[in-house]
Every structure is written in C-alpha cells, then in structure tokens.
Design a protein around this nucleic acid. Structure first.
Lengths: 227, 227
DNA sequence: TCTAGTCATGTTGTATACATCTTGGCGGAG
DNA sequence: CTCCGCCAAGATGTATACAACATGACTAGA
C-alpha cells in the first residue's frame, strides 16, 4: 500500500500521501482515539488545502475501516466490539504464517540495526508511556512488513495492523503495563534472532504466536468497548 | 465489503453503492476491458450526478487496483503483468483454504438451488460466449462468498476476485474454450457436492485447487499482457 | 524533408458556494 | 412539570467554475 517505489509521483498524489499517512499515524498512535470527531474544515486548514482533496483522504480511511462519516453529524474514528476484534485477529494470525511462505524478501542489514536500536530504546529509557510504546510498535512492524515480498499480502497485513492494533493500545491501561512491555521486548528479540539467520518463516511464526497471545490477553481485559 | 446488512443506509451511501457496484461489474465483465479510458463527465451524466460523487467512486476503485487515474490524461482500467498476476493468485490460493477454517457459515438451501440453476444454464444453452461465462463465474462466486463468516476475509477474497479474475477472462480466447467451460462446470458440480453435505472446508480446498490450475493454464497461454 | 518548439485542447485535480441532513435547544400546549 | 413539535446551527454531501497538467498537432526554421 502506498508503494514507496522510486518512480516520480504527481504533485497531487504526493499531497494525498502526506495527508493520508499523517492522519493514519495519528489514529494509530491514539492521538485521534476511537470515537473522536474530526472536523473536515479544521483539518483542511491545517494541511493548507480545501475540503475536496481532504475528503478524498477521509473517504479512503473510511473504506479501510478507520473512520466513519455520517451526514449531518460528523466524521468519527471507529472502534471495535470484541467480536469484530476476534475475527480480525484470527485472520491476522493466519496471514502471519504466510509471510515466510509467499515470496519472503532477504533481510537488509540496516533493518537489523534498526531493530537493535529499538530494543536499546526500550532498555535505556525509563518506563515508556503508551504513546512511546505505540511508536515503538509501529517502527518495529514497519521492519516486519519489509520482509513481505508478496505485494497484496503486504498491503493487507499493513492495513489490518492499522485497523486493530490501536484497540490493543486502548486496552493497555487496564492490563499489566510492565508485563506488556516485557512481552513486546521479547517479541522483538526473538524476531531479531530469526532475522539474523535469515529464517523468515520463523519470523512469521513468532508473530503469529504473539498475535494469538495478544488476543487472549485482550479477551481477559475487564472493560469491553462500545462500538 | 459493502455489507448488505438490513440497516437503513443514507441516501448518499445508497447512490454511492449503486454506482460503485455498476462500475465494478462492468470492469469484471470486461464491458470495460483493461486499458480502456473512462470519461468522468460522461459517467457522471449517465448516473445523473455531478463529477464530485462520481470521483469518489472512481477513487475507491483506484485504491482497489481496478482503475488508475493520471492527471491531464484520463482514468484507465488497469491490467496486470504475469508477475503481479502470479503473486495475487498465490495469495488467493492460500486464502481459499482459510474459508473453511475461519468461521464458516451454514449452507443456505436457496444457495444450493441457485448453483443447480447455474449448472443447468451451462448445460441447456448453446456454447456460452465470454460475457455469459463471466456472468456465470460472477454468480457462482457470489455463492462461495456467502459461506465466509469472517468479515475481513470475505472482503479481501471478494476484492482479489474482482481484481484478477477479469485477466483470466481476457486470456480465454487464446485457450481451449470448450475445455475451460468443462473445467468450470466440474468446479461447480464438485462445490455443490461439498455444500450438500455441509463440508465448507472441502469447498475451500476445491476452490484452492482450481485457482492453482487456472494460474498454471494462464502461464501457458501464449500472449503476455502489457501493463 | 526533418526537427524542434509552441500552443490549443481535453483531461483530471482543486476551490468554493450551496443543498441536505442530523441534532439539540427552545417554547408552548396539556 | 412533562412532552411534543418546531427551528436554528453546524456537519457532511453535491454541483460548478477554475487551475494544473499531458498530449498531439501545427508551424517555422535549418
């Protein structure tokens, strides 16, 4: 999705990508939490464009399930009930085991370095707050996506991550924060080991395991979400 | 995708769906073949709306990979090179085996009737032309989709079908027409048998097999497509 | 004749004004 | 006091005019 290929993009498409990526990141980092209303006019002013191109971005985010527009009311960040969350997680789980089977890409040395840096960021700093955790998750999964050589699989995996991982983040405060940090640290370390020996299949299986365990922990979390 | 749930849709969304489904079907049936240019003004007039809501539909079809807009040039129906086709088919193949594992839905009796009617349509009539075949494929796969209880999996499976099956149709004239018809007939009959005993897992595996064989036959077809 | 430059033409992209819809508050009748 | 209905305000959806852009034909020069 949003191929970062080197061919020149038109200026219009460039603008679209900037706004799209910015809004998607804000939703993913919970700067725009589920249920929040977004004002089209306000956003258009912020990015220095009219409502027309901005609405194009919002429309796409809506088809991806991140937003929901209701005429006369507003545009809102979506949430998930546990049933929808479970369905999506079960699919993500199956897709994870495919990344090693469908055209895996070779591991880039810089990718290993970046993951080591992420682990160091987690170890050195004090206890990270939720937003810092969200940022770390995002940066880490970017490296995972880089291993997927099958274009539609990469696009779908990315989309489902942005769709559901933010819900996990909203449930984090009701979970054992220190434990979650430690689990994430272990996932990064395990993934790094697998990548170092070039075993992409193992990377997929590690991720599959953690997606499954993550879903289980969410199901045990006390408060359900209202759609 | 485009949930046919019974809750009332706003008038705007209703219009969007009508136009979206109409254009997607035309692309899928090769009424709009790969490479064809679509005029926004012309389409807007046909559907009795202005360019604004029409462009919303075109924008979505573009993110789904069915269209490609270039400023100052036009909006074109996309094609695929063999590499992209192979990647997408390999993913479709893996997804097919999931439909029996992820929340399969019970078989509706009317669905069995409709499939029997499709087989009868193929047996009674004369040798069907390509467009009639495209219509039969579409109607048949609609019944397959109805078995997928996992919403994101159903949406993705549907989207990838509309994205690539039309390419198979463009290659059909260079293949053994009678053989292709017979293969399709057998797939429908096999699927019907599996559905009659409620074995959705088998439905998925049958489909997986035929997707794999279909890709192989396409790879052997003489003329490659230009992107 | 060939070639390079110019511009007219038609397309998609953008800005803006207006239409349509939902919601919440206000006010009067019971 | 309660409840029903109306209306005003603000949101998204739509229509239209204009800008930006790519293409091909045409022309002038070598």
């Amino acid at each position: 999705m949003l191929d970062d290929s080197d061919k020149p993009k038109s200026q219009a498409r460039e603008r679209f990508d900037v706004i799209y990526l910015a809004l998607r990141e804000r939703i993913c980092l919970l700067d725009y939490p589920p249920g929040m209303r977004l004002g089209e006019e306000e956003l258009a002013q912020e990015f220095g464009v009219s409502r027309t191109p901005l609405r194009r971005v919002l429309s796409r985010l809506e088809t991806e399930g991140l937003l929901e527009s209701r005429q006369g009311v507003g545009t809102f960040v979506t949430s998930f009930d546990m049933e929808g969350l479970r369905a999506t997680y079960r699919l993500r789980l199956e897709l994870a085991s495919l990344i090693g089977r469908l055209d895996p890409l070779p591991v880039a040395p810089e990718s290993l370095e970046r993951i080591r840096a992420l682990i160091a960021r987690l170890d050195r700093g004090p206890r990270p707050d939720r937003r810092e955790m969200a940022r770390l998750f995002l940066d880490f999964y970017q490296e995972s996506l880089a291993l997927i050589g099958n274009p539609p699989l990469r696009e779908i995996t990315e989309r489902l991550y942005f769709l559901t991982h933010r819900i996990y983040l909203t449930l984090m405060p009701q979970m054992d924060a220190a434990a979650e940090v430690e689990i994430f640290r272990r996932e990064m370390a395990e993934t790094l080991s697998a990548m170092e020996i070039g075993d992409i299949e193992a990377v997929g299986l590690i991720r599959r395991t953690h997606i499954s365990l993550c879903l289980r922990r969410m199901e045990l979390a006390p408060i359900p979400e209202q759609p």
